[in-house]
Structure formats: C-alpha cells, structure tokens
C-alpha cells in the first residue's frame, strides 16, 4: 500500500488526483440493508468513496450512521453490496479487513484501557510484519500526535477522552490504512479537543488516506470533507459537494441549527 501514510502528493483538500480520474471508487456501497432483529436500521443506501477522497456521512442521532459503518467493517450482518477495491467484503470476517487496508475507528474510541499507549499502537500494527515500516510509522504518528509519545508507557484507560480519541486514530494509522472509517470522532469531547482531533484528521487526509467520516456535528464534518451524504431514518436523503450541502437550506435548518 504505497499511497498510504508517507505519500505527500495527494491534494491538500483531500481529493487525491492520482491521474486516473475515471477509475472505480475505492469503496462502493449499493443498496445496503441492515436490520436488528427484524427492525430495519439501514434501508438500502448507496454511496461511493473515491481513493484519496474524504467523504462524510452526517445525520441525527439514530439515523443509522454507526450501523452503516459497522456493517462496512463486517461487525453486523448486512445485505446488498459492499465493494472495496473492486472486491466484495460481504463474505469477509472482520479481522481480515485491516490487512486489506480498511481500518475502523469505532464510536467511543475503543482503546484497550488495560494496555499501555505503546501497546495500543502496537495492536494497530498487529497484522504487519515489516519491522522497519512499523518503526517509521510509529515515529510519524508520534510526530503527528506528540501526546502519545509522552504517554507511551501509561495505561490507555488513564488518558483523557481527547487523548483516547487521538490514540484510537493513531492506532488505526499504525495499520497503514488505505481507507479509514471514522465513527463520531468528536463525540463527548470538549470543543478545544474537537478542534485538535479534526486538525489531525485533516492532516491524515492530506497525506493521502481515504476517509469516510461519520459525524453528528454536520458543520464540522462538512468543513473538512469534500463531499457529504445526509442520512435520515436509515436512508440517504441528500448527497453532494460539501460546500453545496453547507449552503442547502434544508441542511442548514435540520443540521446546522439555523
């Protein structure tokens, strides 16, 4: 996966232009349906994420955003089609995804509280065998998130919420992902921490990592992403360029509190 972390050539706005503009999207979801015991939580949504792009999925609490991400990461059974790098993910087990370059930063961070910060980062590189590459990525992540270096020996459970979010991000980056799925990275964080977390997300995107961002904070999500999908009651009701969505009266009223 050469276009991951080290690559600096992708566009700063998150839209990597490797030249082949018309190639298939990195992630292609068609008619995805997920239900919990007969109740449909996601009702046939379709979306696409191109390589190098940052796309956000916004919507109210309970719209089905997290369910969508969990289905993509194969944590929930789903129907429809999930094509990643032109291959179906539906038959894959969750633990096979990270090796294929797909990493999820789950809602609520999901750091291993009883493991140290350094061990959490090492878990991110669990599937990798390239010692030199891992060491280089660790150094890179320490530069990006210096707090993690200072706290390397500390148990992750003793970190603040914002630091845990940084750790969850850093851990996912240790897998050298091609596609990063971020679930509500702003959740439960103080405003200043939210700003810092999103600054890091912006930089990761600028390094060429493709990102699908799920976020309740629509203004924030649309300010970093290139495109967005609006989700409501398990369906996608609007889609388009982030700037267009930010200007859309319906979005402004429903999600931006205006």
């Amino acid at each position: 996966m050469p276009e991951a972390l080290q690559s600096e050539e992708a566009g700063a706005d998150g839209r990597g232009d490797g030249g082949a503009a018309a190639r298939r999207p990195l992630l292609e979801v068609r008619d995805l349906q997920v239900s919990y015991g007969g109740i449909a939580a996601v009702r046939g949504i379709s979306l696409e994420v191109a390589a190098g792009e940052m796309v956000c999925l916004i919507g109210a609490n309970g719209a089905g955003k997290t369910t969508t991400l969990k289905a993509l990461a194969r944590l929930l059974p789903a129907r429809g089609a999930i094509d990643y790098r032109g291959e179906s993910l539906l038959q894959r087990a969750p633990h096979e995804l990270i090796g294929a370059g797909l990493a999820l930063v789950p809602e609520g961070r999901g750091v291993f509280a009883r493991l140290s910060v350094a061990e959490n980062l090492a878990m991110g590189a669990y599937c990798r065998r390239d010692r030199d590459g891992i060491a280089a990525d660790l150094e890179h992540i320490h530069a990006l998130l210096p707090r993690l270096k200072e706290r390397a020996g500390q148990l992750a459970g003793t970190l603040s919420g914002g630091e845990q979010q940084m750790l969850a991000l850093g851990r996912a980056l240790m897998s050298r992902p091609q596609l990063l799925l971020l679930d509500e990275p702003s959740m439960g964080l103080a405003p200043i921490m939210v700003q810092r977390v999103f600054e890091v997300i912006r930089r990761v995107a600028a390094e060429g990592v493709t990102i699908l961002l799920v976020e309740q904070n629509a203004r924030l999500a649309l300010s970093v992403a290139a495109r967005g999908y609006v989700m409501e009651s398990g369906a996608i009701t609007l889609a388009g360029e982030a700037a267009a969505l930010l200007a859309d009266p319906k979005v402004r009223e429903a999600y931006l509190g205006e």
Binding site: L75, E96, I98, G110, R114, L115, M123, Y126
Partner: peptide, 11 residues
Amino acid sequence: ENPQIAGLMGV
C-alpha cells in the same frame, strides 16, 4: 478486554 475491537485490529 474487547474481542470486537481486537478483531478490528486483525486478531
């Protein structure tokens, strides 16, 4: 600690 998250790490 968390089998689901460990699975996400490729375990």
